[in-house]
Computed example of a mutant assay.
Amino acid sequence: MKKQWKRGFVLLLVLLLAFSMVGCSGDGDDEALPEVINIGVLRVPNDQTLAIAEGLLDDHFGEMGIECKYIIFDSGVEANQALASGSIDFASMGNTNAIVSLARDLDVEMIWIHEILGDIEALAVKNDSGIEKVEDLAGERIATPFASTAHYILLNTLKLAGIENDVELLDMQTAEIVAAWERGDIKAAYTWQPSLGVLLQTGFPLVTSQDMAEKGFITANVVVGRKGFTEKYPELTAGMLMNLAKAGDIYRADAQEGARIVAEELEITPEDALMQMQGSIWKTPQELLGEDYFGTTGNPGHFAVIMKDTADFLEEQESIDQAPDQEAFNTYVNPKYIEMAVEMMD
C-alpha cells in the first residue's frame, strides 16, 4: 500500500508540474518584456533630447534588459510612415502630424506634449527683400514642410492677411529649405529651429508661432505611441514619460545647464540651445493633467478641442480627407500614462 501511495503521489506531482509548465508557456510570452524599444525623435532642443543626452531612458530601460533605439526623423510625415509600418513604438512630431495619424486611422494615441511652440518656429524673410508685412508676400513663393505645425500656422497667417490665394507654397523639408534659401530660390519660409537659425543669419522673423498662439492658434510638439505597444506595456510607456519629466526638471532647475547638455548632443552652441529652449514652453506632467491640456481620465482637457479645431482647418485646406469628430480626439489625447508617471514619481 505504501509503495502504491508513493507511486500515486509521484504521478500526481508529475501531472501538476506538466500542467503548470503548459500554463507558463501560454502566458509567459505575452508578459515578457520587449528586447528593444524603437523611439522616433526630432533633433530639436526639447526634453526628449535632454533625456537621451543624459542617458535617462537608456539607464531606466537598460536595468530591465531593454535596449533603446533612436530613429531620427526630419518631420512627422516620415514618423507616421514608420508608425504605419509598425517599425517604431513612439514618435515625436508636431500636433498637426498627430492629427494626420488619427485621420489616417493609424493605431496610435497621443500621450505627451514636449513643448508648446513659440519663437522656436517662425516665418523668416530675407533681408533687403522689400517684404515688411505679411501682405507684402503676395506673389511670392514660400517654403514650409507640408502637414506640419509650421504649415498650419503659415496657412492661418496668410488667411488672416487675406492673401492665402496669392502666394505659391512649396513643400520642402528643413534641409531643402536651407538649400533653397542659400541659392536664392526663395525669399520666405516658415520653419523651426535649427534650420530657422540658419535663415535668420541673413533674414528676420516676420511672424512667429508665439505671435499666432496669442491669437488662438496653438501648436506643440507631442509624443504619439503605437497602441500595440502602449496598451501591452503601460508601465514601460509611463516610465518613458517619467524620464521625460525628469529631463524637464533638469532644465527648469538650471536652464544654463540644460542648454549645455542639449548643445553638446545637437552639436550647437549653448547660447543657441538656450535661445531655442526659451522659445517654447515646457510643462510639468502635473500641468499637462490640467484642464488646459490633457485633463484627466474621464475629463478631457482643452487640448483635445484645439486638436479638433486644427483638424477642421486642415480638412478645409484639403490637407486631410476628413476631420475626426470631437469624441475621437477626446479619446486620442490620452492622459492615462501621464497619470501613471506621476504616481511613479510620487
Rank of each mutant, 00 (worst) to 15 (best):
D107L: 10
E135K: 14
A103E: 06
P145C: 05
P234I: 09
D74S: 12
E182L: 07
T49F: 00
E264S: 15
A103Y: 07
E63S: 06
I218E: 15
L13Q: 03
A91F: 02
A98S: 15
E121F: 13
G203D: 09
Y293V: 03
L102V: 05
I37G: 08
K133C: 04
L83F: 04
S129R: 11
K283V: 02
V305R: 13
F9K: 11
D107Y: 12
G26E: 11
G26Q: 12
L266P: 12
S280K: 15
N299W: 02
L57Y: 04
T157D: 03
Y70S: 05
D30G: 00
M277A: 11
S85G: 01
C24N: 11
F204R: 14
H114C: 04
L206H: 09
A253L: 11
D321Q: 13
L15P: 02
D136S: 10
E78V: 10
G298N: 07
E176R: 09
K133H: 07
I39K: 04
E257F: 09
N334P: 08
L12S: 14
S25C: 06
M1L: 09
S209K: 04
P285G: 06
L33F: 07
D59Q: 08
A220K: 10
Q278Y: 07
I66C: 02
H114Y: 13
G216C: 05
N95K: 05
V167W: 04
E182C: 01
L289A: 08
Q4N: 09
L155M: 12
G86T: 05
D89P: 03
K246D: 11
F217I: 14
H151G: 01
D185F: 00
V134K: 06
E168H: 04
T230S: 13
Y337K: 07
K6P: 00
A53P: 01
K6C: 02
A259H: 05
I120R: 09
T157C: 08
Y70G: 01
F19Q: 06
A311T: 04
Y332C: 08
G216I: 08
R43K: 10
N299Q: 14
A245P: 03
V10F: 09
I72M: 00
V108P: 01
N38I: 00
S209I: 01
K69L: 00
E339K: 03
G130I: 11
Q201D: 13
E327C: 01
D128N: 15
D47R: 11
S129V: 11
L102T: 05
K6T: 13
L274A: 12
N46G: 12
E63Y: 03
S20D: 08
A124H: 07
E343L: 02
I320P: 02
G203E: 06
T297M: 15
S87R: 09
Q193I: 08
L11D: 03
L33C: 04
P145I: 04
F19D: 01
T219C: 09
S75K: 01
F229G: 04
E67I: 01
V223H: 11
M1K: 11
C68S: 12
K159D: 12
K227Y: 00
I177F: 06
S101V: 08
I72G: 00
R104W: 09
L244Q: 07
L170F: 02
G225Y: 02
T230D: 04
L56A: 00
L274E: 14
Y251V: 03
N299R: 13
V262E: 02
T310Y: 00
K227N: 13
G197N: 15
Q210S: 09
E35V: 03
I111G: 08
